[in-house]
């Protein structure tokens, strides 16, 4: 058990050194594929958008959860654009202008996607209608007996 703790401590101590050697290129230009924005508000916006943008090579995943090179490149562009003052929706629109609505996990309301939005409402309406009919029927039956 003690050797394990020692190993863990050694790894924790070694990690920053290797990270500095391999990842951080120069302190002046952080690589935003993996490095957070300095502004916590913008970083939060960027992370929220990353969860909402589909990785174009690993199609089922958002760019936030993919190790693919291209996903990293998409994270970099998202952070850079938000860092430069664009709103998340502007960045989303830019990506949609390149890859189509497919790239966004937030489907727009348009004729092709209308069922997606309308079916739940329709189902709710049908459910309510059935329930009301049933209640009325039960009341009639109750009144009769």
């Amino acid at each position: 058990m003690r050797w394990f703790a020692a190993l863990l401590a050694a790894m924790l101590l070694a990690a920053p050194a290797t990270a500095q050697n391999s990842i951080a290129p120069t302190p002046a230009a952080p690589d935003y594929a993996e490095v957070s924005l300095a502004d916590p508000v913008k970083e939060k916006q960027a992370l929220a958008l990353m969860d909402n943008i589909r990785c174009v090579v690993c199609q089922g995943q958002p760019v936030s959860g993919s190790n693919a090179d291209l996903a990293g490149d998409m994270r970099r562009i998202i952070r850079e654009r938000i860092g430069a003052g664009e709103t998340p929706e502007q960045v989303r629109a830019w990506l949609v202008s390149k890859y189509g609505a497919w790239v966004s996990f937030k489907p727009p309301l348009e004729p092709r996607t209308a069922p997606l939005w309308l079916v739940p409402l329709l189902a709710l309406a049908i459910g309510l209608w059935l329930l009301m009919r049933r209640l009325k029927w039960d009341r009639l039956k109750g009144a009769k007996s």
Binding site: V56, L70, M74
Partner: peptide, 13 residues
């Protein structure tokens, strides 16, 4: 290097 041109082209692979 950073797929900037690829992303600008809307190319996905």
């Amino acid at each position: 290097d950073q797929s900037r041109i690829q992303l600008a082209l809307g190319s996905s692979g």
